[in-house]
Nucleic acid binder design. Structure first.
Lengths: 119, 119
DNA sequence: AAAAATGCTACTGAATTAGTAGCATACGTC
DNA sequence: GACGTATGCTACTAATTCAGTAGCATTTTT
């Protein structure tokens, strides 16, 4: 019996293309795939206050390995969420939009913590 | 030279505990770790309209493997985001809160798609 | 009793990530 | 020109996570 052929590509998830777990190309699916790549959202989070160079960013992300950091920077640059400037890596306008959109989630996380502590 | 000892546990990321990539126990860090587990946010997303039983949920998530689905259900139940009822798996009040908090992100994803299509 | 549905486990192979070392280029300094 | 330093990044191996398939145990339905 042949193994199921891979239909979702290994490449970067972007809206309009099939991604891991979904063929529709819907933006939300691309985002969900992106978000599941370890460290990606963390990087966006750590860039919220401004640009950071490679090693400081690495530190800020809990001493993430340079391999992974660089992979994620490729992802983020291809997705046009981050760009490399003289001051280091920084969020693009799009990236800042994501960061803002993510704010309610971080607020919710605090409530989540409170609820869990009541049990 | 000894390898760096693992300090962040393999277990479920929850607020108050160290998680992969962060020792602080801050809720947002637990959430970022959770979000990076493949399929987890997707599951929350697919449960947005109500309860689903195991196999329908599996289908909705793009035929995710039952192994992974079950792992995620353990994660989500431990995090008190999902519970198993007679109608199947469904979001708890906390889980629904996350889903609502996630709404701006899904809206942003649409804008993201539009921006990328202009290039 | 038979059939179907349910939640779930076992197993192997593939993909992703962790962790460490170090390269290549650019820059300033002595 | 030799030296030290900072920069972004690559190479490599080992560990972890995930994909994909088969099928079990229990309950519900017919």
């Amino acid at each position: 019996m042949a193994r199921k052929t891979r239909v979702t590509p290994k490449g970067l998830p972007l809206p309009g293309k099939p991604v891991r777990g979904s063929e529709t190309g819907r933006p939300i699916m691309a985002l969900l795939d992106l978000a599941s790549r370890r460290g990606l959202l963390r990087i966006v989070w750590e860039l919220r206050h401004g640009a950071l160079k490679f090693r400081p960013l690495q530190q800020a992300c809990g001493d993430i390995s340079p391999t992974l950091l660089n992979q994620r920077m490729k992802d983020l640059r291809e997705a046009q969420l981050v760009e490399l400037s003289d001051e280091g890596y920084r969020l693009t306008a799009l990236g800042q939009g994501l960061r803002r959109a993510f704010e309610p989630v971080s607020v919710w996380a605090e409530q989540w913590a409170q609820e869990l502590n009541r049990n």
